[in-house]
């Protein structure tokens, strides 16, 4: 017996609104601040979760081809973290 497509899809449809609520809450925290690290942390969490959810959504769209997007998202948000941290803690970005 093969895996039924509709069962998996239905499951993902149920997770979609919950995920979107989480995304919105993250965005609220990111926009609210109050400090710079808070904003970055929220973007960070938002993007890692987005990377995970993009993979889940790829199943929903039946397009496994969409996957490489997740790794790029995760990598560059890490880079963003690093930049901001460097900005905050050092005098020159290159040192």
């Amino acid at each position: 017996m093969t895996v039924s497509e509709s069962e998996v899809i239905t499951f993902i449809i149920i997770t979609l609104p919950i995920y979107m609520a989480a995304f919105t809450l993250y965005a609220v925290r990111a926009l609210k601040g109050p400090t710079i690290p808070d904003t970055v942390l929220a973007i960070d969490a938002m993007t890692y979760d987005l990377a995970a959810f993009l993979v889940v959504l790829a199943i929903f769209f039946r397009s496994p081809i969409l996957i490489p997007t997740a790794i790029v998202l995760a990598l560059w948000v890490y880079a963003l973290d690093i930049y901001v941290a460097k900005y905050l803690e050092s005098k020159e970005m290159g040192e």
Binding site: T35, I36, P37, V40, L41, D44, Y48, A51, A52, V55, A58, I59, P64, I65, I67, P68, A70, I71, A74, L75, V77, Y78, D81, I82, V84, A85, K86, Y87, L88, E89
Partner: peptide, 27 residues
Amino acid sequence: MAGGAVITAVLILILGPAGSHALARAA
């Protein structure tokens, strides 16, 4: 898809804590 997801997961496992550590230290 499976391979990409696993590699992404491993990277997140390694990079995520390093990012929050860097951020916390800088803060």
